[in-house]
Write a protein that binds this DNA or RNA. Structure first.
Length: 255
DNA sequence: ATGGCTCGTGTAACGAGA
């Protein structure tokens, strides 16, 4: 199974690129974040025409997540049952025996803000819920825009980013707590080129200068990590015209 | 020091992202 995650920053704008990318990268499962569209406007027909089923949880203007799959999707869950949330940030399902949880973690905006507190509470509740899910599904993948660069090597300029949102110690601690419950960062299971990132600022030629962060992740339960044979970030669509600011992350699983 | 771009909304700026 090939599983991928991509923050598309508006599915309406990016749909042609999603279809183009799937044509070149026919993954089994593609998790999307920031679809920014209500469910009644989700482009289901186009996605089905490309050979994928889809489940989605969207809202107007902000957030929104979806899972595209070549294979049957069962036991769909929307949102974290342990955390009341107006924002559509989680969708999960079982596909080919793998529990897939697609997450769009809050950005946090600024250290000390209400949004930052919400981010940390959200992550704590996510960890509690995933702990329960792991008991029922030993093959589990938590994937998405986790909005945390877990280590300094995931940041183009750690000094410039020091103490700011996405790299702060409380956020990194929350990321480690996800590792404490057995989740493995698929990207770090393998030798990787230095300065590999998944997001680059639209401004100031961020991509051209590789001023990026690795904030999109595929985290695997221990059983699944043992069956992971590769994890890469595909920079190609970031070079396209009118790109998302994020690039897809792909993992290959021997399941 | 700040903002620098790209979304949606809605049709002008503005909030939000990261």
């Amino acid at each position: 199974m090939k599983i991928a995650t991509w923050n598309v920053n508006s599915l309406k704008v990016r749909l042609p690129q999603v279809l183009e990318w799937l044509k070149a990268n026919p993954v089994d499962v593609l998790c999307l974040q920031e679809t920014k569209t209500t469910d009644d406007k989700f482009p289901l027909a186009e996605i089905e025409a490309a050979g994928y089923q889809a489940i989605f949880a969207g809202q107007k203007t902000y957030n929104g997540v979806a899972i595209l799959s070549k294979h049957p999707i069962t036991d769909v869950v929307k949102n974290n049952p342990r955390f009341a949330d107006e924002q559509q940030r989680i969708i999960g399902a079982t596909i080919d025996g793998v529990r897939v949880v697609c997450a769009y973690v809050p950005n946090g905006q600024e250290i000390g803000s209400d949004k930052f507190a919400y981010k940390l509470q959200w992550l704590e509740a996510l960890k509690d819920w995933i702990t329960e899910e792991e008991k029922q599904h030993e093959a589990l993948a938590l994937v998405g825009d986790l909005n945390i660069a877990p280590e300094d090597r995931d940041v183009h300029d750690p000094a410039a980013w020091d103490g700011s949102v996405l790299v702060s110690e409380p956020e990194r601690e929350a990321f480690r707590h996800l590792q404490d419950i057995g989740l493995k960062d698929a990207f770090r299971l393998f030798e990787q080129p230095a300065k590999t990132y998944s997001w680059w600022d639209y401004r100031q030629l961020g991509f051209q200068k590789n001023k990026g962060l690795r904030i999109d992740h595929i985290l695997l339960s221990e059983k699944l990590a043992q069956r992971c044979t590769a994890c890469t970030i595909d920079r190609t669509p970031r070079k396209w015209q009118q790109p998302s600011d994020h690039a897809p992350v792909i993992a290959e699983l021997n399941v």
